[in-house]
């Protein structure tokens, strides 16, 4: 059951990810954004299979909720209709495929060189919200506070950047 679900979610994630990047039917950014939402949802499914329940919830709330709404909002705001017509340049396509092929070759080579691990999993990590919260508020308390300051800085920065007339 677990294996079947893994293959299902992995295939759907990859297909939707491909459709974000190169959709043969539509070049509209809105379509890409919608497929990115699907990719993120299926990846949350993979997180559930890895017993990272809290992260799956956060993934859907933050990415599929907040971030993608922001993306769609900006796409609608900019009204990018005339951009659909442009063609992908042959040179950039070739360069892109070559460099991506090189990266894939490196990944494949290093994966083939690994030794498969022993499959002993710790059942204490099931449903990881409680241990994750404990870890977050003990060992990682300082990074946690710094991240909250970072969010404040980002908020102030965004408001400043989008102001009409900067003084």
């Amino acid at each position: 059951m677990h294996d079947l679900l893994f293959y299902l979610f992995a295939a759907l994630t990859l297909v939707c990810g491909f459709l974000v990047v190169a959709n043969p039917v539509s070049r509209n950014p809105v379509t890409s954004a919608m497929f990115l939402v699907l990719t993120i949802v299926f990846m949350a499914g993979l997180f559930v299979l890895l017993h990272a329940f809290f992260l799956a919830a956060v993934q859907i709330l933050v990415y599929a909720g907040a971030v993608m709404v922001l993306f769609l909002f900006v796409i609608m705001l900019l009204d990018l209709k005339e951009e659909e017509q442009r063609k992908v340049k042959r040179l950039s396509l070739v360069c892109g495929l070559v460099s991506v092929g090189a990266i894939v070759a490196i990944f494949v080579k290093s994966l083939l060189a690994t030794i498969p691990g022993t499959g002993r999993l710790d059942p204490r990590l099931e449903g990881a919200t409680l241990p994750l919260g404990k870890l977050l508020f003990t060992n990682f308390l300082l990074p946690f506070e710094i991240v909250s300051v970072l969010l404040l800085v980002a908020m102030v920065g965004v408001i400043l950047l989008t102001k009409k007339d900067l003084k």
Partner: peptide, 28 residues
């Protein structure tokens, strides 16, 4: 799966010419 998804994102950054789609590929 992770490596393939990363490669797809990289392909998007290199091939697509729309800033917003490039940004989505970065998210990928």
């Amino acid at each position: 799966v992770s490596a393939l998804l990363f490669s797809l994102g990289l392909l998007g950054v290199l091939v697509r010419r729309n800033l917003l789609v490039i940004y989505m590929s970065l998210e990928l």
